[in-house]
Design a protein around this nucleic acid. Structure first.
Length: 246
DNA sequence: GCGACAG
DNA sequence: ATCTTGTCGC
């Protein structure tokens, strides 16, 4: 999935240098936020769905990102790709994207099948500055994205037990996501829009992708990332990534 | 000052 | 994220 020409590639580079401090990272989020389209109709046809995830190693800061493409109809795997890297930022709540994004983008660029939709492991609008990983990836890659987080960003009411039940997740200014029950009586997932779709459509997609609690896209990407990390070149042979100051 | 805080 | 044993249920 090389994303050449077009606005997409342009925006990636116009986004400026990699932030060196959390303050710069926050400024960049605030700058990019208006570019996220969070009430779009969503893509007309979704034939292929991609998922991404990252696995970490604690001794060094080597990480592995995995991307998978599934047939949206059958959920059969069509293509996979991985990329090694190093955590590009110290983890801080609200700045996850800066930690994982370079490795994820590297994995996505190895795909040859262009996904019609990307499911992200983390949040989109449900974020302190309404610009989580899913928004960031969506804007930079010009791809419809959905954020599916395993833990909530703020307080939420527990949805009813049946699969498909949901409750709203709000911030001070309005609705930013839903706690969505993807399996009966199992802890919900936390869905928010990333880019070029809307919340109702996003939840419908997530529900279709869920055989278990988490979408098949992220489950497959999770397994693949772990596997890739286990077989990863250790330490010196992993390409360095620009790191930021704490 | 204290607790919360995607992965 | 990651470190971890057993356990309940389809």
């Amino acid at each position: 999935m090389s994303t050449p020409s077009t606005p997409a590639e342009f925006e990636r580079f116009s986004a400026g240098p990699w932030p060196a401090t959390p303050q710069q990272a926050i400024a960049l989020q605030n700058q990019l936020r208006p570019l996220a389209r969070v009430e779009d109709p969503g893509p007309d046809q979704v034939y292929t769905v991609a998922g991404i995830d990252v696995a970490y190693r604690t001794d060094d800061d080597v990480i592995a990102a995995a991307a998978v493409v599934l047939d949206a109809e059958t959920l059969a795997p069509l293509e996979t790709a991985t990329a090694h890297g190093r955590a590009a930022f110290p983890y801080q709540p609200g700045l996850l994207a800066f930690r994982e994004l370079p490795a994820i983008a590297a994995a996505l660029e190895k795909l040859t099948i262009p996904p019609d939709l990307l499911i992200c492991d983390g949040s989109g609008l449900a974020h302190p500055r309404r610009f989580g990983l899913a928004c960031h990836l969506g804007v930079l890659l010009d791809l419809p994205t959905i954020g599916v987080a395993k833990t909530p960003v703020g307080p939420y009411r527990m949805p009813d037990p049946p699969r498909g039940s949901w409750t709203e997740i709000r911030d001070d200014d309005g609705v930013v996501g839903r706690a969505l029950r993807t399996r009966e009586n199992v802890k919900p997932v936390f869905v928010s829009v990333g880019h070029r779709t809307n919340l109702t459509t996003a939840c419908a997609h997530v529900l279709r992708l869920c055989r278990h609690r988490l979408p098949e896209t992220t489950r497959r990407a999770d397994h693949l990332a772990r596997h890739a990390l286990a077989n990863s070149p250790s330490g010196e042979s992993v390409p360095p990534t620009t790191r930021a100051q704490p």
